[in-house]
Computed example of a mutant assay.
Amino acid sequence: MSSTTPTEHPAPERRPPGGPVLQDSVTDAITTAFFEELASVGYARLSLEAVARRAGAGKAAIYRRWPSKLEMTAALATAFAVDASHPADTGTLRGDVLAFLTQTADALRQPLPSRIVPDLLAECTRNPELSKALSTAVRDTRRNKATHMLEQAVARGELSADVDRALALDLLAGPLYWRLVVVHTPTTTDYLDRLTDKIIAAIEA
């Protein structure tokens, strides 16, 4: 993830097949309103009517872009995940891991993502449809990007070809999320450097 907020990432096509041209300004307003409303009330209580009111748009403007709350959430969350998932290619595994952790930490410190992400994860335990949509759109997108980072390290000879990729992906995501989102503990200036070294040591073990 990057340091940008979700409100900066509109997602849908601008001209649905056979439909009218969708105005970027309206799409941007709806996208911003959606993430603000989601952060405010959570997915379970979120309504498209409230999003429309916050955006200063009609409810029909939402339905021209997304047919349901579920599809709207999946589409916008996907757009944010895709736009934010660009691991740096620094030329070394350590540089790549540190850049990945820095991007993730910057995103999780933002006010909206820090409230939205835990809510969506909790809701996924109660809503199989949402869980399936977000797993495919968001989790798989980010894990594929991180897997590419590992494959680059294998190609450079920094990691063994039989490295446990699944475990490495868990190590990349888990500790930082736990610290910033679950226990809400701030990081010191050297924390990401130290975490990078520990993660690499664990991956190489």
Rank of each mutant, 00 (worst) to 15 (best):
S2F: 00
T4K: 14
T7W: 07
H9Q: 07
A11S: 14
P12H: 03
R14W: 00
P17M: 00
P20K: 05
P20Q: 07
V21L: 07
L22C: 04
D28H: 10
D28T: 06
F34Y: 12
F35Y: 11
E37C: 07
S40H: 13
S40I: 00
Y43F: 10
A52T: 07
A52G: 08
G56H: 08
A61I: 04
Y63F: 15
R65F: 15
K69H: 14
K69V: 13
L70H: 10
E71V: 09
M72K: 08
T73I: 09
T73E: 03
A74K: 05
A75I: 12
L76H: 05
A84Q: 07
H86G: 08
T90E: 02
G91M: 02
L93F: 14
A99T: 00
A99V: 02
L101K: 04
L101G: 08
T102F: 04
Q103V: 00
T104V: 02
A107H: 08
R109K: 09
P111V: 06
L112R: 02
S114H: 10
R115W: 00
P118R: 02
P118D: 10
C124M: 12
T125A: 02
N127M: 00
E129Q: 14
L130W: 03
S131L: 15
A133G: 13
L134Q: 02
A137S: 01
V138I: 08
V138M: 11
T141H: 02
R142G: 03
R143A: 14
T147N: 11
M149H: 11
M149C: 09
M149R: 15
E151Y: 14
A153D: 13
G157L: 13
S160L: 08
S160M: 03
V163A: 12
R165A: 05
D170S: 11
A173H: 14
L176Q: 06
L176V: 00
Y177L: 14
W178M: 09
T185D: 12
T185I: 11
P186I: 11
T188G: 06
T188R: 02
D190W: 11
Y191K: 08
D193A: 06
R194E: 07
K198C: 06
I203Q: 05
